[in-house]
Simulated scan of single mutants.
Amino acid sequence: MARYCKVERRKVLGEELSKHPFFTDEELAERFGVSVSTIRLDRGELGIPELRERTWAVANEAYSALKSLDNKELIGELVELVVGESACSKLMIDESMVLAKARVARGHYLFAQANSLSIALVDAPMALTGSVELKFVRPVHLGEIVVAQGSVLKRKQNKYWVQVSLNVDSEEVFLGNWILFAIEDPSATGNGDG
């Protein structure tokens, strides 16, 4: 780890937080080899808000980009969305989502998080799931936070190929490959849903 003088550290800190706004002050302090209070002072001097405010700003920006579904239809909390490219959401597994005996998440919650994120990636007023290949890698337990990462692999006319990976910490727990159809005129489909 390189040691930085104050001016260099602040410059690099600003660059890091513009690329990765979810770093905590503790993670940054460890990365730069300084105290948490030094990081807070640096952020203050740079006019960079604390993590909670940065998270709120990024989430608001992501939700404003939603086109193919309503924000209430998305399962999990949207963290990042670049329509037609990539997206990220997170979901805390709570008591209402687990099987009573096993204390693991019901599969339909994980599928719903991944499916709604894949639909959010489609650049159209509406999208329908055509097919899905998926693999549950390991059970997800009560209290774990599931982070979904989705990306558009290919697009041809109104057809999208999307891959979504669900992870707990850095461990993959679910992987799915979607084929979705963009619907430009929702009234032309009757009353189907995503």
Rank of each mutant, 00 (worst) to 15 (best):
118 S>F: 04
10 R>V: 00
123 D>N: 15
191 N>Y: 05
136 F>L: 13
43 R>F: 00
19 K>A: 12
126 M>K: 15
86 S>V: 10
11 K>S: 05
51 L>V: 03
116 S>N: 05
93 I>N: 02
67 K>S: 13
11 K>E: 09
115 N>Q: 11
58 V>K: 15
144 E>F: 03
162 V>A: 02
119 I>L: 03
101 K>C: 01
33 G>N: 14
182 A>T: 06
79 V>R: 11
87 A>W: 08
127 A>Y: 07
6 K>H: 12
114 A>T: 02
138 R>T: 14
174 F>Y: 15
74 L>Y: 04
103 R>K: 15
35 S>N: 09
168 V>M: 06
45 E>N: 01
166 L>M: 03
128 L>P: 13
142 L>G: 01
115 N>G: 10
154 K>P: 01
113 Q>D: 05
91 L>K: 02
146 V>G: 01
66 L>W: 09
135 K>Q: 12
74 L>C: 06
154 K>V: 05
92 M>W: 02
193 D>Q: 11
39 I>H: 12
119 I>S: 01
96 S>A: 12
26 E>P: 05
55 T>Q: 13
25 D>Y: 03
147 V>Y: 07
52 R>S: 09
62 A>T: 06
114 A>F: 02
2 A>V: 09
46 L>D: 03
108 H>C: 09
135 K>M: 07
157 Q>F: 11
176 G>E: 01
184 E>Q: 15
194 G>V: 04
44 G>C: 04
186 P>Q: 00
57 A>Q: 15
38 T>C: 11
102 A>T: 14
108 H>A: 10
101 K>M: 05
33 G>H: 14
125 P>M: 04
102 A>C: 00
